[in-house]
Amino acid sequence: MKERILVVEDEPTIATGLRDDLELEGFAVEVVDDGTAALSRILEEKFDLVLLDLMLPGMDGLTVCREARSKGRRTPIIILTAKGQEVDKVVGLELGADDYITKPFSRRELLARVKAVLRRGREDPGPGKVYGFADITVDTGRFEVTRRGERIELTATEFKLLQVFLEHRGRVMSIDELLREVWGRDAILTDRVVYTHINHLRNKLEENPQEPRFLVGVRGVGYRFDG
């Protein structure tokens, strides 16, 4: 069965180009041109990936991302940003987007990002392991994180990042290692993506994100998981 991608873009030329490039790669593509319709489709249907422009009529892309995550949708999201929208990139990642692409982008970059995010989403976690730290339980087989029985919602990328840390407890991991382990060797990303996702995990897992107990930064080297 073809993987389904929802393209949310109000510029007809860009939307058509995205549809054509993705369909040539064998994906099933649906296009919507405003944020309100996009959120409805994300909540109603199961997509394997959403390509989400930020500047949209009806509802902006950041709001779409926030609302989708607040309603428990873990569908991978790649946000499309224009040059100079650095703040929007960071906010988008903090709201739960998995990656971003800056316009204008090449077909090669687009497909590399799409395939990398889809690959993370469909990776087989294997038979599953259960990890525990403090009052938090992580079940990789069920793709579930709970605190005292209450579910903590993580995106696919956040879950993968946490899993990598748990598999290397006590060892300092460099930014390059984390990029390779979580996003893949062909990912075209900056260090900021790692920093933002780690901060997002801290906000969800740490009692005091400003003084983390588990996701500890080691200046000039990387990060260590001490749970």
Rank of each mutant, 00 (worst) to 15 (best):
A112L: 14
T137F: 11
R73G: 01
G149I: 05
G141S: 08
V145I: 04
G121Q: 08
G84Y: 03
F133A: 09
T75G: 05
P76N: 05
K71D: 12
R119F: 09
R148S: 12
R108W: 09
K83R: 15
A112H: 09
G121V: 15
E144T: 14
E150W: 03
R107Y: 09
R107K: 14
T140G: 15
Y100W: 10
E144I: 12
K115Y: 09
D99C: 01
Y100D: 08
V87K: 10
T146C: 06
D135S: 15
D135T: 12
T81W: 07
A82Y: 02
R113M: 02
L93M: 06
R119P: 10
G128I: 15
T102D: 01
R120E: 14
A97V: 12
I152A: 04
G96I: 00
I79M: 02
E150P: 07
E94N: 14
V145M: 03
V145S: 01
V91Q: 01
P125H: 04
L118S: 07
G96H: 02
G84F: 02
D88V: 00
K89G: 02
T140S: 14
R120M: 14
F105G: 11
R148P: 05
P125R: 04
G149Q: 12
G92D: 01
F105Q: 06
R147C: 13
F143Y: 11
T102V: 13
L110T: 04
Y131I: 06
V114T: 08
